[in-house]
Amino acid sequence: MSVSTGPAAPAGPTRRTSAPRKRGDDTRAKIIDETVRCINEEGFAAATAKHVAERAGVTWGVIQYHFGDRNGLLMAVVDDGVARLLTSLSAVDVGGLELAQRIETVVDTAWNCYASPTSLAAFEILRATRGSLGEQSLGHLLQMNSAINRLGRLISEDPADSGVAEVIWAALRGIVLAQMIVGGAFDWQSERRALIDMVCHYLQRG
């Protein structure tokens, strides 16, 4: 005996695809990357929303959609730069390393974070805007200060050595500034070696 199952049930709703979101994320990332290149190649003043749009091959409306205005775009660059810096610093592992190796690892990691194109652009934005982007930019500075403190503890847990990481950062800032003035990277291996040796000598005092 056959049993009728009735008319076929209507098809369910079409499952949403993540493709539109991915395209949006890719476009946003492309605009941020082009802003970074614009600032590093042409300077902060050149990074107008119109010029970035031209470089990225998008319209002003696309930038408005993703960032709101130029300040929103600049803040997105800072967000990205600080996020990458903090992620890199938090991933440092110096467990089991001798003192000199710990210092080398910390110095090289800090340098790679600090001298990356995104970080250079982010710091240039913070310098040029002098806090005018609002509380969020000040919050980033506090985050970076906290990261510096964590970096110092990777070298030494002694509170008396708490200023060591700040000295490292100050030295790297000076080298980065010199590169920005010169307009390109240069060989800083002698300065790197001197910085590592000085920190190592200081921590081995007494």
Results as ranks from 00 to 15, higher is better:
C38G: 07
I39H: 01
N40V: 04
N40D: 08
N40F: 06
N40S: 06
E41C: 07
E41T: 13
E42V: 08
E42W: 10
G43Y: 09
G43P: 05
F44Y: 13
A47K: 00
T48A: 06
A49G: 07
K50S: 13
K50I: 07
H51N: 10
H51E: 13
H51K: 11
V52T: 11
A53H: 12
E54C: 00
R55F: 02
A56C: 09
G57V: 08
V58S: 08
V58H: 08
V58Y: 09
G61E: 06
G61R: 14
V62A: 13
Q64D: 09
Y65E: 06
Y65W: 09
Y65V: 03
Y65M: 05
H66K: 07
H66M: 10
G68D: 12
D69H: 12
D69Q: 12
N71Q: 15
G72T: 10
L73M: 15
L73V: 09
L74R: 07
M75I: 04
A76K: 08
A76P: 03
V77D: 01
V77T: 05
V78I: 14
V78L: 06
D79H: 07
D79I: 02
D79M: 01
G81Y: 02
G81M: 03
G81L: 06
G81Q: 05
V82S: 03
V82L: 03
A83D: 12
A83Q: 12
L85R: 03
L85D: 00
L86K: 14
L86R: 15
T87Q: 14
T87W: 05
T87S: 15
S88Y: 03
S88M: 08
L89D: 13
L89T: 13
L89P: 00
A91M: 07
V92Q: 03
D93H: 11
D93N: 15
D93Q: 12
D93L: 07
V94K: 00
V94S: 01
G95V: 10
G95H: 11
G96Q: 08
G96A: 10
G96F: 07
L97M: 14
E98L: 03
L99C: 02
L99A: 06
Q101G: 15
Q101D: 15
I103G: 00
I103S: 01
I103P: 01
I103E: 08
E104H: 10
E104M: 07
E104R: 14
T105I: 04
V106Y: 02
V107K: 05
D108N: 11
D108C: 05
D108G: 02
T109C: 10
T109L: 02
T109K: 09
W111G: 11
W111Q: 09
N112Q: 12
N112D: 10
C113P: 01
Y114V: 11
A115V: 04
S116R: 01
P117F: 01
S119E: 06
A121E: 03
A121T: 05
A121G: 08
A121F: 01
E124Y: 00
E124F: 00
I125A: 14
I125S: 12
L126V: 04
L126M: 15
L126R: 07
L126A: 11
R127P: 06
R127D: 15
R127Y: 09
R127F: 09
R130I: 02
R130D: 09
G131D: 06
S132W: 06
L133V: 07
E135V: 13
E135S: 14
Q136Y: 06
Q136M: 04
L138M: 08
G139I: 03
H140L: 08
L142Y: 12
Q143L: 14
M144S: 08
M144G: 10
N145H: 13
N145D: 14
